[in-house]
């Protein structure tokens, strides 16, 4: 049984289509990632999966139960961490844990083993009010509360947004540990670098899914060569390349620029000379392996040209 089955799911707010026919399945024990910019529809999709929102049309079942008809059965067996911190800021760490454990009919002691790796870090602050915790600590508390009833499926909406790099790394390590315990995890993130951590990723844009692949397959599929170009002035270089007749894609990427050329017989040496002729100094051109971000941006650009 697939823990999450979504078929042609649609949802509109007023006249705006937030989801335009989404279809995908999540396998048991999988760490499935939804990658996409803000406004792509990730949160709407999650709210339907967690039974907080009814879809306009299409089917969605979670753990074999329909999200509309059997929402109560779903609620007791999934763990959800909303994008916004949603625990009681005026209750202490321990009180939050106890409260959420009790409404699921369990206790912290009963499921201590599952949450221990995360909760142990919070124990020194058990009596501190949740509102007084740091961002990383809040996130750990939210995950602990989402896990307290041993859910079969964990749904995490942008859990690492607004969290520092170290905490983000730690957080993904925790997710891998939970996955090893057999919990299926559905996670969304706007960060492309986190996508690599997932078993499969769905690239989302404008309420639709552009592709669903494993991170390595996503990049393998990429049929173009990506060139990393550096020159003195990054801004002037972008301006120039965007006006260049053979350019297919020009994207800033950290210190350098990721450049894709239309021509099949692209010659980096010629290209470098051409740039130097146009007044650029210290030009470096190197081929790089395409990353998920490259794929994503290319898919987005294609989508826009089709529309």
């Amino acid at each position: 049984m697939q823990p999450v089955r979504i078929h042609n799911l649609q949802k509109s707010y007023g006249g705006i289509q937030a989801l335009r026919g989404i279809t995908f399945d999540v396998q048991e024990g999988e760490l499935f990632g939804l990658i996409g910019p803000d406004g792509a529809g990730k949160t709407t999709l999650f709210r339907i999966i967690t039974t907080l929102l009814k879809p306009d049309s299409g089917e969605a079942s979670v753990l074999g139960k329909d999200v509309v008809d059997e929402y109560n059965a779903i609620r007791s067996s999934i763990g959800y961490m909303p994008g916004q911190f949603a625990l009681y800021q005026d209750l202490s760490v321990r009180e939050n844990m106890n409260f959420f454990a009790s409404v699921f009919g369990t206790t912290l002691e009963q499921n201590y083993e599952l949450v221990a790796p995360i909760y142990r870090q919070l124990e020194p602050f058990e009596n501190r009010l949740a509102g007084a915790l740091s961002g990383g600590m809040k996130q750990k508390l939210a995950l602990s509360c989402a896990l307290i009833h041993k859910p079969a499926l964990l749904v995490l909406d942008e859990p690492t947004t607004g969290v520092d790099a170290v905490s983000r790394k730690e957080f993904w390590q925790m997710l891998h540990r939970l996955k090893a315990k057999g919990i299926t995890i559905l996670v969304s993130t706007p960060y492309m670098d986190e996508a690599k951590q997932c078993d499969r990723i769905a690239l989302m844009q404008n309420g639709g899914i552009l592709s669903i692949e494993s991170p390595s397959a996503v990049t393998r599929q990429f049929d173009r060569q990506v060139w990393s170009v550096r020159a003195g002035s990054k801004y002037r270089l972008i301006q120039f390349l965007r006006g260049y007749e053979h350019a297919e894609s020009v994207q800033p990427f950290g210190e350098s620029i990721h450049y894709i050329d239309y021509r099949a017989g692209f010659d980096p040496a010629d290209f470098k000379q051409m740039l130097e002729r146009n007044g650029f100094q210290g030009v470096q051109v190197q081929q790089v392996a395409p990353g998920i971000e490259d794929v994503f941006i290319r898919l987005m650009e294609q989508e826009e040209t089709y529309e």
Binding site: S76, Q89, G105
Partner: peptide, 13 residues
């Protein structure tokens, strides 16, 4: 307003 209702609504309450 604070968003806590979101977490409460996914519980079996």
């Amino acid at each position: 307003e604070i968003g806590t209702i979101e977490q409460l609504n996914v519980t079996p309450i």
